[in-house]
Simulated scan of single mutants.
Amino acid sequence: MKLRPLHDRVVIRRSDKETTTKSGLILSASASETPNRGVVVAVGTGRVLDNGEVRAMAVKVGDEVVFGPYSGSNTVKDGDEEFLVMAENEILAVVEK
């Protein structure tokens, strides 16, 4: 499936759930938290301002981003993969490498 988000929306592939702690303990499925990180898969053209101009997106395809725990409530499934569709302003930070 190929998604092209509109305006200031981004499509994110959520990172895998952590199954072990840093110290090596294995977490049960109910104890593991849903990750709040992911990789940007697609971006829209940008936010349309009140004067009609389009503000470019601050994120690009391939960026690893951090978002809030309740961000991206719009999910799209493609087979076994699940993607989040959210507004750019729901992204809290870009992870620098």
Rank of each mutant, 00 (worst) to 15 (best):
84 L>G: 03
97 K>S: 14
62 G>V: 00
64 E>V: 11
34 T>A: 13
47 R>N: 08
64 E>M: 10
28 S>Q: 12
19 T>H: 14
42 A>C: 07
26 I>Y: 11
47 R>E: 12
5 P>Y: 08
52 G>Q: 02
41 V>C: 13
66 V>I: 12
74 N>K: 07
67 F>A: 10
51 N>R: 02
88 E>D: 06
34 T>C: 02
50 D>K: 09
85 V>Y: 02
97 K>F: 08
48 V>G: 04
26 I>C: 10
95 V>M: 07
7 H>A: 13
42 A>E: 14
40 V>K: 03
38 G>T: 01
34 T>E: 14
91 I>Y: 12
37 R>H: 14
11 V>Q: 03
66 V>L: 15
27 L>S: 04
43 V>P: 00
22 K>L: 09
4 R>K: 14
76 V>G: 03
15 S>K: 11
15 S>C: 10
72 G>C: 05
8 D>Q: 09
58 A>L: 07
10 V>F: 11
57 M>K: 06
80 D>F: 08
74 N>G: 05
52 G>K: 04
35 P>Q: 04
36 N>Q: 11
91 I>T: 07
60 K>G: 02
32 S>N: 10
64 E>F: 06
80 D>R: 13
11 V>W: 03
69 P>C: 06
1 M>S: 14
87 A>K: 08
29 A>Y: 09
57 M>D: 09
80 D>Q: 08
16 D>W: 13
46 G>C: 01
18 E>K: 14
45 T>R: 15
24 G>K: 08
41 V>P: 01
20 T>I: 07
16 D>L: 12
65 V>F: 00
45 T>I: 09
6 L>Y: 11
61 V>A: 15
86 M>I: 00
73 S>P: 01
30 S>Y: 11
